[in-house]
């Protein structure tokens, strides 16, 4: 554990809680992509199956359980409790275009050929692109509520902080895992446009709207 990793995890946690808070407080999931939320739930489910097979630390297990619970909770709020507020017309990204390539790639580039390892690798690849339906939705509607922008910023920062963590771990522990590093870089690059808009608009008190 290092400071970049801890900040990354806290940023990730903040993002997930912010989203739940936004939906609960406004009693609405307008502007949130259900497809991105579904993809994240698939990601956590595929990755955290190791809760049953290996124990790393209390911190690690608690975070995994929180991420899993929160993501299923978000799906419940979006597709059941506040379903009428879900803006599915604008959530039209085809997620099979993300799931299938991620699955194929996880059979091609993987450390070890075991079911758990392939599922873990699949989750890493899928996570890298899981935000695309949400970004597509923002680009289609041309705007995002401020709290949604904060959510996206925290979610994007998390993997960017992990990149710093991997650099740090490479120098201090000789830790190097190219699968997570390359996927993490792709994931962070996808947010770059959004980061720019967030810094130039949202932080100056303006609403995020596209030209």
């Amino acid at each position: 554990m290092n400071i970049f990793r801890l900040c990354g995890d806290l940023s990730h946690l903040l993002a997930i809680l912010l989203l739940l808070f936004k939906i609960w407080k406004t009693r609405s999931c307008a502007g949130i992509s259900g497809k991105t939320q579904l993809l994240f739930t698939i990601v956590y489910t595929a990755r955290y199956l190791d809760l049953f097979t290996s124990f790393v630390s209390v911190y690690n297990s608690v975070m995994k359980i929180v991420f899993l619970t929160a993501s299923y909770g978000t799906l419940y709020l979006m597709f059941y409790k506040f379903k009428p507020t879900y803006d599915h017309n604008h959530d039209s990204f085809r997620i099979l275009y993300l799931i299938v390539p991620a699955l194929v790639l996880s059979f091609i580039i993987v450390h070890v050929y075991t079911v758990m390892e392939i599922l873990w690798t699949f989750s890493i690849y899928l996570e890298a692109v899981a935000i695309m339906p949400q970004l597509f939705m923002v680009s289609r509607t041309g705007e995002a509520e401020t709290i949604t922008s904060h959510y996206l910023f925290a979610l994007g920062s998390y993997r960017a902080l992990y990149i710093l963590n991997w650099i740090y771990r490479y120098y201090t522990e000789d830790f190097l895992d190219w699968i997570t590093i390359m996927a993490g870089i792709v994931q962070t690059i996808l947010y770059c446009d959004f980061f720019y808009l967030y810094i130039t608009k949202v932080l100056k008190g303006k609403r995020l709207s596209l030209p």
């Binding site: 995890d9 690690n60 450390h111 070890v112 190097l176 895992d177």
Partner: peptide, 10 residues
């Protein structure tokens, strides 16, 4: 060095 199966990251 590769650290499989030590997956301590989230």
């Amino acid at each position: 060095t590769l650290v499989y199966p030590d997956k301590d990251e989230l």
